[in-house]
């Protein structure tokens, strides 16, 4: 299957950055087919711009993921609001 790619196809792959960046995104989330894998490999071998895109895309995903575990002290509620919340809860409990 892999040697079925003819020159015209390789040319198409080599120039199609839109497809390559799509595959870069898909690969980070899902499986891509062996053929897609091969296309991406061929493209990245010849395209330094998409290699930069891939590296940065991975970094962005890692950053977003890291926010989930970011230290809680960075995101604190202000004390006023907490007191307000405490009062609301107390009042509800009394009512019940």
């Amino acid at each position: 299957m892999m040697d079925e790619l003819d020159k015209a196809e390789i040319r198409k792959i080599a120039y199609n950055c839109k497809k390559a960046t799509f595959l870069i995104e898909k690969k980070q989330i899902d499986k891509i087919t062996i053929r897609e894998e091969l296309e991406l490999k061929i493209h990245l071998a010849g395209c330094s711009v998409c290699r930069i895109f891939q590296q940065q895309s991975i970094i962005i995903n890692q950053m977003v993921k890291s926010w989930i575990n970011s230290s809680p002290q960075e995101k604190k509620l202000d004390e006023n609001y907490k007191n307000q919340l405490q009062n609301i809860i107390q009042n509800r409990i009394k009512k019940n």
Binding site: K12, Y15, N16, C17, K18, K19, V49, C50, I52, F53, Q55, Q56, I59, Q62, M63, S66
Partner: peptide, 22 residues
Amino acid sequence: SDGHWNPVHWPKEFGVENQEPL
């Protein structure tokens, strides 16, 4: 036409790739 990057939008190095951008 061919899906090639429009040169205006070419990704450039951020310069932090190797310095713990996270």
